[in-house]
């Protein structure tokens, strides 16, 4: 297979970006999208041209490092996959493929297709955990959790922190990301005493980091590679509201 690649280039956070076109031939249909980019980069090395910077690591859809905006969609045309799980057989031979970084105000571009998502870490540092010291846990079976609740928590906890929700949202909101962590924990009895503080602290941090507000569009759910649903956002709102009420009392 062969393709024309239209790729966003940007030397640094403050540099002016532009699209650059490349062509690539002899791509096997079983090649993954990122392997195709590896091929292009090796081709560039052979021409003594600077390779294209993009984040990636596990290449099996779990680490959340990779994330490209491909032909106008986060993680490309397939549903429920990350960029690294996308295969070239999904594209029409000879077509042009446009690649951009995950753009958002809170995700400044570092270089080319690489963005800074450290705002996500900061949100989780504000409260995305159970405050238990090592060594103080009770016997595991003293905490019983129904299978349904555990599974529901697991669904929410499947978020990989890739940022597709933010990049796809017209408001640049991180609500789905925040909601997934808050839900995963609030569905479990562990950490209940701090649930209120958690929701509040994470939402405030999200606002502080420059993410937009949620207007219930639902694009985030559509584009989430891990099927995190907006029901989690409803749960987050509930937690947050309870929190405010108890604050007033």
């Amino acid at each position: 297979m062969h393709f024309t690649l239209k790729i966003w280039r940007q030397a640094g956070p403050r540099a002016k970006g532009y699209f650059e076109k490349f062509t690539i031939d002899n791509v096997d249909s079983d090649t993954s999208f990122l392997e195709m980019l590896d091929m292009l980069n090796n081709q560039l090395v052979k021409e003594n041209r600077e390779s294209i910077a993009f984040d990636h690591d596990c290449r099996e859809g779990i680490c959340g490092a990779c994330g490209l905006y491909i032909n106008g969609r986060a993680h490309g045309p397939d549903d429920d996959v990350t960029t690294c799980q996308l295969y070239m057989r999904r594209f029409k031979n000879g077509s042009e493929i446009t690649m951009e970084p995950f753009r958002s105000g809170a995700f400044p571009v570092i270089k080319d297709l690489m963005v800074n998502r450290s705002a996500f870490d900061k949100i989780l540092q504000a409260g995305g955990f159970v405050s238990v010291n090592t060594g103080s846990a009770p016997e595991a079976h003293t905490t019983l959790i129904s299978r349904e609740k555990a599974e529901e928590s697991m669904d929410a906890s499947s978020c990989i922190g890739c940022g597709a929700c933010v990049a796809s949202c017209k408001n640049g909101s991180a609500m789905l990301f925040v909601a997934s962590r808050v839900s995963a924990l609030s569905l479990l009895p562990q950490g209940k005493p701090e649930a209120c503080r958690r929701a509040r602290a994470m939402v405030l941090k999200m606002d502080e980091m420059g993410f937009g507000s949620c207007t219930n569009i639902g694009t985030c759910q559509m584009e989430c590679p891990k099927n995190i649903t907006v029901a989690n956002i409803a749960r987050l709102n509930r937690e947050f509201l309870y929190c405010k009420r108890s604050d007033l009392q």
């Binding site: 159970v130 090592t134 103080s136 846990a137 905490t143 555990a150 697991m154 995963a184 562990q190 950490g191």
Partner: peptide, 8 residues
């Protein structure tokens, strides 16, 4: 400890 930390 992992249960206490909220591992589902």
């Amino acid at each position: 400890h992992c249960v206490a930390l909220g591992v589902p």
